[in-house]
Amino acid sequence: MSTSPVTARLDRGVPRFGGFKLAIVRLEIRRQLRNRRTVFFTVAFPVFFFLIFGLNNAYASDPIGRGNESAFIMISMALYGTVLATSNGGATVSVERLSGWSRQLRITPLQPSAYIAIKMATSLVLGLVAILSVYIVAAFTHKPSMPLGLWFATGAAIWIGSLLFTAFGLFIGYLLPSENVMQLIGFALMLFSFGGGLFIPLSQFSHPLRVLATYTPLYGLNQLVHYPLVQGSFNWSWLSNLVSWLIIFTVGATWRFKRDTARV
């Protein structure tokens, strides 16, 4: 066998970064934003919730740590919208496998790891859109109050922390090849949000339920993103909750991903 086979075109090369390109992320974002349900749940829904709960004069101006209750609710709602956006971003793999798009991509130079990188980048942008929508609308209401630096600190914490839910979305997306995976994720995140104390303070739960709630995936992240505002004593169990779930989701997603891309 000749070591340098002659081909009709000699100038062929393999793309850099396994085929990852920002132009593709841009197309993915355009595609996601075209989906009205995605936009409704990740942008309109959290903004609407903030307007209902975050402006309630009965408690909105009550002080909490370095700000007020309205700022606290703003952070909760932004976190909710963001994890929904990043989960959905990850879970699009489910629809793509079902439609044969993943198979189509396998007959292009795109490497599976670059595909995941595209999903993560897209999720991060969509997550940012969700955070900004809540924070900007909230700012216009003049209700939330906290030092300017904390708007950025909490926003950044939500943004980076939401990557946990990209892993969650990828895991579920690879696990369940179904058109209904988005509904399932919406339902799961609703439960996680209650468990994490995003909608109702955990202090209002009964004791056994409160203990159970501290093991749910949004608990640690929710406590951590509020910490700059609430201050007080730092509880290391928040971080161990976050890290544990990150490991679970990442290992799960990697396991399913490897199964999916194995060539048999």
Binding site: S99, G100, W101, Q104
Partner: peptide, 13 residues
């Protein structure tokens, strides 16, 4: 490269 039998397209693009 190949033209596959069916599927392989994203409906929302």
């Amino acid at each position: 490269s190949a033209v596959m039998q069916s599927g392989g397209l994203l409906k929302d693009l």
